[in-house]
Amino acid sequence: MSTSKTKDKYQIAVVPGDGIGKEVMEAAIHVLDALDIDFDYVYGQAGDECLEKTGSALPDETLEIIRNSDACLFGAAGESAADVIVKIRQEMRMFANLRPVKAYPNTNSLSDDIDFMIVRENTEGLYIANEESYTDDGAVAKRIITREAEERIIDYAFKYAKDNNKSKVTGVHKANVLKKSDGLFKDIFYEVAERYPEIATEDYYVDATAMYLITKPESFDIIVTTNLFGDILSDEGAGLVGGLGLIPSANIGEDAALFEPVHGSAPDIAGQGIANPIAMMLSAVMMLRHLGENEAADRFDNAILKVLSDANILTGDLGGSATTMEVAEEVKNNL
């Protein structure tokens, strides 16, 4: 996912969004500003509050800011999430959604050895939201699976495994029932696997995968799957390692990249300053690696690990009583 450093200054689109998105974004930027990197932040609006204020959940100006930036940091969207983040992914052709699931100290992880990446196809499947309503009693949603998109995401997963010294890729589908669409996915998975003979392969049905994530999560390295399945499994993965407050993500395309925590806007705790900023910070770490700023990414990542290991300054979801910005300050002090 990372690239070689090519710039001395980066333009970063910052879209805080709704609810705790604003709070965790402030925390992440607080730490980013302590790194020796020249960032030019350009702020954009999106989400429920933007919809109420402007009549659009995702104004054209925000899309243009993202399009013209080296990367985008996104906080969270509320009820308008499908009209915001899904649309950004589609407009920017961000075909790969990366969701790392990793055990950290003092986070009530199911196992200390959990460390895998979910590589999720981002542009088709059920999330194109192509629905037809027939009567009040029923409706139809079309699930689109194409060879082009699935071969692209599967190849991306194998390349990611190779570049990050991962030894196995697991394809996840439901080909026993969805014989044409997921049958195609499975066929393509093994076709692509032939190009990477050094990487072990296996495939599971999505329901079996859901079970194996509980019974043997340490056995996974890279999971590649379709849009809906990847979304569901990544939330299950969050439950394995302490919750959504610890799961970052990246959306990668040919010409654009967006980094966001997996969690939503959490309106029940918004404005209280108690949201866990770790997922947003880890998303910023992913952004740094994408930009080729690996030394800074390591510093940021290690500072987060130190704070979690010490367990003195943690938010309530991890058993502590610290505020969002107290955690940010502690991470900054440990850079």
Score class of each variant (00 low, 15 high):
residue 99 R to P: 07
residue 309 S to M: 03
residue 44 G to P: 08
residue 258 L to K: 02
residue 319 G to F: 00
residue 142 K to S: 12
residue 303 A to M: 03
residue 168 K to G: 02
residue 166 K to G: 08
residue 175 A to F: 09
residue 71 A to W: 02
residue 270 A to H: 12
residue 78 G to K: 14
residue 299 R to Y: 12
residue 140 V to E: 11
residue 68 N to W: 05
residue 101 V to S: 05
residue 125 G to P: 04
residue 11 Q to W: 06
residue 107 T to L: 01
residue 138 G to C: 12
residue 161 A to H: 02
residue 186 K to Y: 13
residue 250 A to T: 09
residue 231 D to R: 03
residue 287 M to K: 09
residue 51 L to M: 14
residue 1 M to D: 13
residue 331 V to M: 03
residue 248 P to D: 05
residue 273 G to L: 04
residue 96 A to V: 14
residue 200 A to G: 01
residue 98 L to H: 02
residue 224 V to D: 07
residue 31 V to D: 06
residue 90 Q to V: 02
residue 52 E to G: 15
residue 204 Y to M: 14
residue 275 A to F: 03
residue 5 K to R: 13
residue 58 L to K: 07
residue 158 F to A: 06
residue 162 K to T: 13
residue 124 E to Y: 04
residue 279 A to Q: 01
residue 190 Y to F: 13
residue 111 S to R: 00
residue 192 V to R: 00
residue 90 Q to P: 06
residue 188 I to G: 00
residue 91 E to D: 10
residue 217 P to L: 06
residue 7 K to N: 08
residue 301 D to P: 09
residue 89 R to N: 01
residue 122 N to L: 11
residue 106 N to R: 04
residue 323 T to F: 01
residue 217 P to M: 03
residue 232 I to Y: 10
residue 156 Y to W: 11
residue 261 P to M: 03
residue 50 C to W: 06
residue 166 K to E: 10
residue 141 A to H: 12
residue 230 G to Q: 09
residue 249 S to K: 06
residue 154 I to C: 01
residue 213 L to S: 09
residue 257 A to V: 06
residue 62 T to N: 08
residue 291 L to G: 04
residue 231 D to S: 15
residue 296 A to L: 09
residue 14 V to P: 03
residue 1 M to A: 13
residue 146 T to W: 06
residue 63 L to T: 03
residue 137 D to P: 05
residue 155 D to P: 04
residue 161 A to P: 08
residue 298 D to Y: 15
residue 201 T to E: 00
residue 88 I to Y: 05
residue 264 G to Q: 07
residue 138 G to T: 08
residue 212 Y to V: 10
residue 101 V to Q: 02
residue 323 T to G: 11
residue 32 L to W: 10
residue 220 F to A: 09
residue 38 D to L: 15
residue 282 L to I: 02
residue 77 A to M: 14
residue 22 K to V: 14
residue 124 E to P: 01
residue 236 E to Q: 15
residue 90 Q to D: 05
residue 206 V to S: 11
residue 184 L to T: 01
residue 55 G to C: 04
residue 86 V to N: 12
residue 48 D to L: 14
residue 111 S to F: 02
residue 297 A to P: 09
residue 243 G to I: 03
residue 257 A to Q: 04
residue 132 E to P: 10
residue 163 D to Q: 12
residue 74 F to W: 05
residue 136 D to M: 06
residue 197 P to W: 02
residue 204 Y to H: 15
residue 331 V to L: 07
residue 295 E to P: 09
residue 255 D to Y: 13
residue 38 D to E: 14
residue 87 K to F: 00
residue 165 N to P: 02
residue 330 E to A: 14
residue 55 G to P: 03
residue 239 G to L: 01
residue 221 D to T: 02
residue 203 D to M: 00
residue 190 Y to H: 11
residue 306 K to D: 05
residue 46 A to K: 13
residue 286 M to T: 08
residue 157 A to T: 03
residue 150 E to V: 14
residue 305 L to P: 05
residue 99 R to T: 09
residue 310 D to E: 08
residue 66 I to A: 08
residue 201 T to A: 04
residue 160 Y to T: 07
residue 54 T to K: 11
residue 151 E to R: 15
residue 300 F to Q: 07
residue 80 S to Y: 13
residue 215 T to M: 00
residue 172 V to H: 05
residue 77 A to C: 15
residue 289 R to W: 10
residue 215 T to S: 11
residue 43 Y to N: 03
residue 292 G to Q: 07
residue 130 N to R: 12
residue 29 I to H: 01
residue 318 L to I: 06
residue 287 M to N: 06
residue 123 T to W: 00
residue 193 A to M: 00
residue 179 K to E: 13
residue 41 Y to H: 04
residue 40 D to R: 08
residue 168 K to A: 11
residue 201 T to I: 00
residue 259 F to V: 07
